[in-house]
Design a protein around this nucleic acid. Structure first.
Length: 108
DNA sequence: GGAGTGACTTTTT
DNA sequence: GAAAAAGCCACTC
């Protein structure tokens, strides 16, 4: 127990990301809230480091506004790929943004 | 221990 | 409504 308490904020973020179901997305803010914190910045930092790209679908994490935000290296190409991947999961994009009310996954 | 950084968010112009 | 500035928190050097 409390194993998660031993984990750094970073690792907690990773774990939550891996918990996001397929076909849904989450926001940095929600992630931080799920961790009882407001460190949306730290969440972004954690994902930017992305120590475990194999187990962490970071492309399911987007901004609070519904825009993609960023991806590895902030490269437009990577962003595009992220959108494409989300599309494959059944998420529909509206002007580069997604319907938060439909696809936003809330951690319980 | 302090300064710098960032895949953010909110408010203001 | 878009763009800019400030605010914020955790991590890294």
């Amino acid at each position: 127990m409390q194993i998660e308490d031993k984990m750094n904020f970073n690792e907690k973020v990773y774990k939550l990301c891996s918990k996001i179901p397929r076909g849904k997305v989450s926001t940095y803010k929600e992630l931080a809230k799920a961790l009882n914190s407001k460190a949306y910045r730290a969440v972004g930092n954690a994902l930017r480091n992305n120590k475990y790209p194999n187990i962490i679908p970071c492309f399911r994490v987007i901004k609070n506004d519904g825009s993609i935000g960023g991806y590895c290296g902030k490269n437009p190409k990577n962003i595009k790929k992220k959108i494409f991947k989300l599309k494959l999961e059944g998420i529909i994009f509206n002007k580069g943004k997604i319907d938060m009310d439909k696809y936003l996954y809330k951690f319980k």
